[in-house]
Design a protein around this nucleic acid. Sequence first.
DNA 1: TGAAATGTTGGGGCG
DNA 2: ACGCCCCAACATTTC
Length: 469
Amino acid sequence: MDDTVSIVWFRKDLRLDDHPAFHEALKGSRHVIPLYIWDPEYEAPWSPGTASRSWLLQSLQSLDQALQNRGSKLVFRYGKTRAVLNDIIASTRATSILWHRRYEPAVAERDRLTIDHLMRKGVRATVLSGSLLREPESIRKDNGEPYRVFTAYWNAHRRMMPHRKPLPDLPPRLPSVHPSIHSDAIETGPFFLDSSKPSNQTLGFTPGETGALHALRHFSTEWVERYGSSRDRPDWTGTSRVSPHLAWGEISPARVWDTITPAHSTPATSNGIDTFLKEIGWREFAYHLLVHFPSTPEEPLRGEFRHFPWQNKPKALERWKSGQTGFPMVDAGMRELYRGGWMHNRVRMLTASFLVKNLGISWTEGSRWFWDRLFDADLANNTLGWQWTAGCGADAAPFFRIFNPVIQGQKFDPDGTYVRQWIPEINTLPQRLIHTPWMASDGDTTYPDRMVSLIESRQRALNDFRSLS
DNA sequence: TGAAATGTTGGGGCG
DNA sequence: ACGCCCCAACATTTC
């Protein structure tokens, strides 16, 4: 160990467990500066939305506390990334900076420029993989092309050598950060948010690494074995709810994998395990697609959708966003999202289908709204999900696959527990009418009537689709 | 990770 | 007891 000063640049890896960059920094330096830079422009055009900023503020406070418990601290700065780095390097005489690779096209490009800049200053930049099981480029079809079909991709992924094991937690004592190194207050200006921000308490999320490990532990002991069917029930807590933690890197996919697999290896229970691991696979696949098709956050992957006749209907869009469509399953989901910063996956599919197919509004409007309201906003996953729904992406649902929110409600929220939770206006309706409140005789409710006819809007969607080819 | 339309089958009511 | 019809239940096709 020499006198080297290293900076560990935290981004979407707000944890101390399985943190390759921090481990690497500890190997060769006496001083390690944990740094976070708040610079929304570096993330543009996908700067953190309302929910993301709220989560991030709390996650950074949690990370700072964890570092302080080990004798270090988080140096938090806001400003232009390059200016902040220049300043920190000048004041600490750091000669090395380490971080984990990002895959969002614009961020990846800025990272390349940052590396060049650092090199010219004589600072060594080390970029490691820490947020995925495998690098997106490491999986290819025999002809060298990227995969476009999930099952084929996942089979190839699982045939390969085992992916890397998670690294152990960092040591209990970390190098201290000299008090003269300036840090801005985390809870100041940049994070100002109005009262309409979602609350992590609504659904019981705890931002930060401790909350992440707790959520995963609970899921792996209580739910994962029945995940195959429990994942379809928005009225239960049968899903892992680790998505915000994964999105912010409060837990790594390698740690998730390791926690879920070894303890439950008996054939009788493997169904739920495999189904859950496949969801981790979808996340890997999403990054595979984002890296190889970098324009997909804005443009459909399938070119014939470029001129699809999406409709511009601001008022209808507003009703969808605010959960006032008149269809309980859609509205429950949209209200859960707005207030709780999260939505059950089955309900994501059905609300998305409703926007794109029944309302005929572009999937990009939906992806922008989800981006703003989701604690787990993740460009790769969000893009894949919306293009999947719209039928314009890789391995997408065919356009004629249209969810019926009434049938979905009757199947997956049979008691109406979920819709009652989010829509108090229909709380007193009898069971058999809970997903069809318009069939109730007394109009004694403020709940809106259906904004479209399911039959007619479905027919129009199919017609629009036919005109494509 | 869809739903509607259409086709098929078989049990039971009834003349 | 038989044939006919109805229709629920399930299967297949279509969008």
